[in-house]
Design a protein around this nucleic acid. Sequence first.
RNA 1: GUGGGUGUAGCUCAGCUGGUAGAGCACUGGGUUGUGGCCUCAGUGGUCGUGGGUUCAAGUCCCAUCAUCCACCCCA
Length: 417
Amino acid sequence: MEFTTLKGFKDILPEESARWQEIETNARALFSTFGYREIKTPVLEKTALFSRGIGRETDIVSKEMYSFEDIKGRGLTMRPEATASVVRAYIQHRLYRNYPIQKLYAMGPMFRHERPQKGRFRQFHQINVELFGDPGPQSDAEIIILAMYFFEMIGLRDLTLHLNSLGCPDCRPDFKEKLKRYLAERTSSLCADCQKRAQLNPLRVFDCKVETCKSVVQNAPAIPAFLCRDCRDHFGSLKATLDALNIPFEVNDRLVRGLDYYNRTTFEIQTEHLGAQNAVAGGGRYDGLVKTLGGPDHPAIGFAVGIERVVALLEASKPAELRKPDLFIAALGENVSLPAFQWMTALRKQGLWVELDYGGKSLKSQMKKANRLDAQNVLIVGDDEAAAKKAVLRDMNTGEQIDVGFNNLVSTLKDML
RNA sequence: GUGGGUGUAGCUCAGCUGGUAGAGCACUGGGUUGUGGCCUCAGUGGUCGUGGGUUCAAGUCCCAUCAUCCACCCCA
């Protein structure tokens, strides 16, 4: 085969697309009851939007972006995530002007040049939800509850909400310093990767799966002890709100997310059924990002759902509901093929799903085809029927057959089916 | 970027220690000159990922290459 999809890129075939539509429809319905409106932004942006927004040192920016120069030499990038683009739009169109609080969602493809594996692709799809303009913990709670309701609505079970607070510009630097110093004293016990992390982004060492690193981290300074008064109150209030709404969660002070813009609340919704890629959704607060990208100093919080991962989890459970054809017309002989085509077209215009075999096959093979399509009824029209000016309507579930006169055939069928 | 597994019919796979390919499902047709599902019979369909090598002989052994999956890293 000469032409196939690129590595890490996937066709979403018809069997699967029904599932995707189901997920997107549910998302739209739920989000609107929470007051969120859809925003669609381009997949292509200036490279600097992402490098400044996500952070130069992050894995995403330093080695995973699909970046290139266009014909005029401008640096462009296929978006590796949506938040930076949504923030850009928020600033560019001054969405904050008329309404102090903006609640937005977006869905679409993202691109990251990573090695594909289970639950991870180079083009993947996210549903993003962002709330701008409110710094309070109830917004954090709203966002998290929205995410949890979404998964409940589409029927995903066995999910765990992991929650953490990363502190703010007031308290994080202090913590980072202490941690750096602690790690520096134990460099020899760390794996090669963590030795680098200890310098660049010491928080990441918390994520390491190497045993020796884990034990080093065990007694390392923990984030909660360093949170400033405001951050501690914020986090405490969020937890209390979630408790009050019976949203179970686990505080996970090792939950460190890979994008630089997060502060205070971060969370991840995880599953046990996806191998190593266990996050189906992740997000957090990013109060400084709008300002960093040239906008006003507005706070924000949001999250992203990985659609492919949701689809993979749903696949194991129940199959998506599929529509079945209302009618299959088995036309025998050339003198009925045109009327059959006319009936079919008229019924389709009425909203019925009607199928017709153009191949002039035997009745038996047409019945087989109708059965394969799971058509609910078959209209049989041959020479006998043409002569008698009435067709035979067969109910494929019961096997009952009745005659339907050619006069007003379309409206009769429309009423019956 | 690193490591491991797998590449045989449209799909899922079998093929032992080398002797030029098989099953199930699917598809087409018959068993019912105009009636589906079940059953039954038959048929279509493969340069065994690709290129090289060893050999009288390679799907089977060796090398390379590509693809794919899984894992590391990181993330949705």
